[in-house]
Design a protein around this nucleic acid. Sequence first.
RNA 1: GGGCCCGUGGCCAAGUGGAUACGGCGACAGGCUUCGGACCUGUAGAUCCGGGGUUCAAAUCCCUGCGGGCCCGCCA
Length: 621
Amino acid sequence: MTVENPWAEFTKQVIEALQLSSGQDLSQYLELPTDSHHGDLACTAAFHLTQQLKKSPAEIAKELAVFDPIRFPLIEQVVAQGPYVNFYINIIPYRRLVVEAIQSAKDAFGRSTQFAGKHVVVEYPAVNPNNPLHVGHARNAVLGDTTARLLQTVGYDVTRMDYINDLGLQIAVAYWALKHLDASKYKGKYDQIVGRLYVEAQEHYDESQVRKYLKQMEQGDNEVAAEVRKLTERVLRAHHKTHAQLNVHHDLLVWESNIAHSGLFAKALEKIMAAPTTSRPTKGEKAGCVIVDLSAYEEFQQLKDTDKVLVRSDGVATYTGKDIAFHFWKFGIIKDPFHYKPFKSPKTGDTIWTTSNSGETGHYHSADIIYNVIGIPQSQAQRTVYLTLQTLGYEQASTNYYHLAYEFVTLPGAKFSGRKGTWIGFSTDDVIREATRRARKEVKKRNPEADARFLRQVAEAIGSAAVRYALLKVAVEKQIVFRWEDLLNFDGNAAPYLMYTHARASSILRKELPPSKVRLSELTNPYETELIKLLGRFPAIILEIVHGIKREVWGTRIELFHLAEYTHSLCVAFNSFYNHCPVLKADTKVLKGARLLLVEMCRQVLSNALGLLGIKPLERI
RNA sequence: GGGCCCGUGGCCAAGUGGAUACGGCGACAGGCUUCGGACCUGUAGAUCCGGGGUUCAAAUCCCUGCGGGCCCGCCA
C-alpha cells in the first residue's frame, strides 16, 4: 500500500517503539534535533521521567533506546546520547516510501482529506474601493490567498470571500472628487486615479454635498447609488488586475450596500434582542441604543464601560453591530437573503459571484469555520465580535470565528494612509512594476535570444512572485518595514532563487527523463539522502501548519512562513546536490537513472510547494 | 490609566522550556575542459534589549525596567 505521508509513518513507528519501551505515550516529547548528527527525531522524555522512575535521565534514556527492527523497519537505530534518545531513519525502506508516494500522487503529493466535509470561508483583503492596494494590503491578500490554498490542500471546502465596503464616507468623498475634480491629469489604472483624486479631495471637498451623497448611497435605488456602484466596481476591477499579478483569487464578493438593502440587519436585530445580555436602556448615557453587556469578560472589565453599543440611538447600526449581522449570515444563523450575479474577472481567470440587487439566489452555503484576515490593530474589535456572538448564545459560531491576524507593513518612519496619500509610489502596482523591471533585466541577460513575449511573461512572474514571497516569509506578528532592497534582492531566500532551482531541475529533465526501472540503492551519498528526507516531509509540513493554527489574545496565528522555509531548504539541498553530483554525466548508467528520478521528484515537490505559495513554477526563467 | 505586538551578529530574520542559537543579505577567501553562476564551498561576525527570579535545563516561563509600533468612541 502506498502511504501519503512518509514522515508521519516514520513518526508513528517511533511513537510505538517508545510506547513499547516505556509503557506510555511519549509523543509530546518528540522534537527535531538541531543537528543531523543527533538523528532524525529525538525524544527528551528522559528528563521528565526522573521523578516517576527515580533514575537519572541518562539511565532512562538507555532503557528507552531499544526497539524491534523487524516490527519497526523504518527505524535504523536508536541511540541514547546522554539524556536524549535519538532515532535514525532507515533510509532503505524509507526512500522506497517516498518514491512511491510522490510517483503515485504527483501534483497531489501533499494533499490529504483529513479535514474533508467542512466548509471554510476565508475573507481577504477587504480594501476600500477608493484606493489602489498598498503593500500592506498586499500582505493581507497574500496571507489570505495562501491560507485558502493550504486549507484546500488538507481537504476543506473553501470559499475565498472579499468584502467590499462601498458605503463609507471615504467612498462618498471619492465620488465627490470624481464629480468635481479633474481626473484627466492622473494617468494609469482606475484605482490609482481614484486614489489620487481622493487624496486631492481631502483639502477642499464640500462636506454638506458629501453628506447628501452618503445619504443617497445608504438609501439606494437612485442615480447616485447606481453611479457609486459603477465607480466602486470599476475600482474593484482594477484591484483584480493587482490580484491577478499576485496570483490572488476569489470566489465570492459581498458588498456592504447589498447587505444594507437586504433586510439582513433587521433579522439579526431580532436575534440580538432575544439574548439576555442585550438591552435598550430608556435612560442614562446610552438611552435609545441597543447595547450588549460584556462585563462577564475580564478584559472588558478594565474598560470605562462594559456595555458595547450595537445600534446607535439614531437607529443606525455600529460597525460591531453590522459585523455581528454579517457573521450571522456567514454561519447560516440567518437565511441567505442575497441575490447573486457573475462578476467577470478576466484578469484573475476566476469565476466569481457577487452579491447584487437582482439575479439568482442560493450561491452561498453556510460556513462551519470563518477566517477573517485583518490586521492586529483591530484585534480588540475582532474579539468584541466573537465574544458578543458568544454572549448572544452562539457558542459554535464564536468558537469557529478566527481573526487571522497580521502586523502592518509600514514605511520607514511613516504609515500607509489612503487619505494622506503616503502610499503614492508604494502601491502594490508600483512595487510589482519595479520588481518586474529588475527581473526583466536579469532574464534578458540570461536569455539574449528570447522574444519579447517570453521576457515579459517571465519577468512578470518573477517580479510578482518576489513581492509575494517577501511578504509571506515573515511571521505574521512581525511588523514589516518596507525597504526596496528587501524586495529587489533576488538571491538567497527569495522567490527568484526558488524559481531558478525549479528551472534548473526542469532543464535536466528536458534533456533526459528517468527510466521506468530505477535502482534506488544507487542513492547513497549525503546529498541524495538529505533530499529524500526533505521530500518525504512535505505532506507533514502542510499538516503541521494547519494543526498549528492557534488562537491567541491578539488574534489567530498561522505559520505560513514554515512553508516558505521548507521550500527554501529544499532548494538549498537541491542546489548543493546539483553542484556535487553530476546527473547526466554520472559515472554509471544506473546511477544516472536513479539521480534523474531524484531530480524529477524534487521538481515535482518543488512545483507543489511553489503552487501552495502562489508562485508559478516555470520551466525556464 | 488599562491592554496588545515586537526587540536575536552591520542589516533582515527562525527558534517560544532541552544538545554547539536555523537561515538570508552584506563582508572576506575559494570553485565553471561538468547538467543554467539568480549557483556552490569555506571564513569572520551574537552581552539573544537591561536587571532580578523559577527550573536539572531559559532567547523561550514569571516579575521589573527600557526602546519601537498599536488599540481602548453611539467614529468608520
